[in-house]
């Protein structure tokens, strides 16, 4: 199947937005997953609910909230622009932010399960063998939780590639800047006679999602075989 230059740009933009979203969300997701898996504190139920909010709130609401908070006149948006010169509204960075927020709950869930599945007795064994808490984390806990971290990232990537509602609300549908695959398909369907364009782009998104799932399955299986580790 032959894509036009514009269509390749759409694919490239989608990949860039999703990759930035996932790698940006990774450290935050892992810390949240760790806290939810290992810590007990007042307000844990609330934190858990907040993390899951993007999963259950209509994406258009999430997009609107992002606009209020991270828009050029929003509190976080204004501060980020003045401090780092970082702009989100109507920019691809905003699309990445929206995708990250939407992917976050899925990433946290997968990582939390894999952290909970790590046998803490193994961590204790490492400590008695002379490893401090950080070494134990990097040599025992993280490798054993790794398949789940990977699964979370791939799941988040698939979610990001498909993100539509929050993105179009927050950063609009600007060709070359914020027009990712789903937004391009939507735009193509707005005008009669563009079904062929929409079909090509739809096939690309299906292939990308399928690839992501196959990659995650393969990696998870391989690491299960090699490590006897845990996948969700």
């Amino acid at each position: 199947m032959i894509l036009s230059e514009v269509e390749w740009q759409i694919v490239a933009l989608s990949l860039k937005v999703s990759a930035v979203a996932i790698f940006g969300a990774l450290p935050i997701s892992f810390v949240l997953a760790w806290v939810l898996a290992r810590k007990h504190f007042a307000g844990k139920v609330l934190l858990d609910a907040l993390v899951h909010l993007p999963l259950v709130v209509p994406p258009v609401v999430t997009g609107w909230l992002l606009l209020i908070v991270f828009g050029n006149n929003g509190p976080a948006g204004r501060w980020l622009e003045q401090t780092f010169g970082l702009q989100f509204m109507f920019r691809w960075t905003g699309a990445a932010l929206a995708a990250a927020i939407m992917a976050l709950p899925l990433m946290v869930r997968a990582m939390r399960l894999s952290i909970e599945a790590v046998d803490r007795k193994l961590e204790i064994a490492a400590r008695t063998l002379g490893a401090g808490p950080w070494r134990t984390f990097f040599e025992i806990t993280l490798p054993l939780a790794f398949p789940g971290v990977l699964a979370g990232m791939v799941l988040g990537f698939a979610r990001s590639i498909g993100e539509f509602g929050a993105t179009i609300t927050f950063v609009s549908n600007i060709p070359g800047e914020t027009r990712t695959l789903p937004l391009a398909i939507y735009a193509a369907l707005q005008m009669p006679g563009n079904e062929a364009d929409a079909t090509r782009l739809a096939v690309v998104s299906v292939v990308l999602s399928l690839l992501a799932l196959i990659v995650s399955e393969t990696l998870a299986r391989r690491s299960m075989r090699e490590r006897g580790g845990h996948v969700l």
């Binding site: 064994a125 063998l129 006897g228």
Partner: peptide, 29 residues
């Protein structure tokens, strides 16, 4: 802290690290 006590703890369940070979387990400490 446990890592400062210099105890060789043999657990009831052997608690070998499942993601490391026997050699790496032996040499861990």
């Amino acid at each position: 802290a446990p890592e400062k006590r210099g105890c060789g703890y043999v657990f009831q369940d052997s608690r070998l690290f499942p993601h490391r070979s026997v050699r790496a387990n032996l040499l861990y400490g």
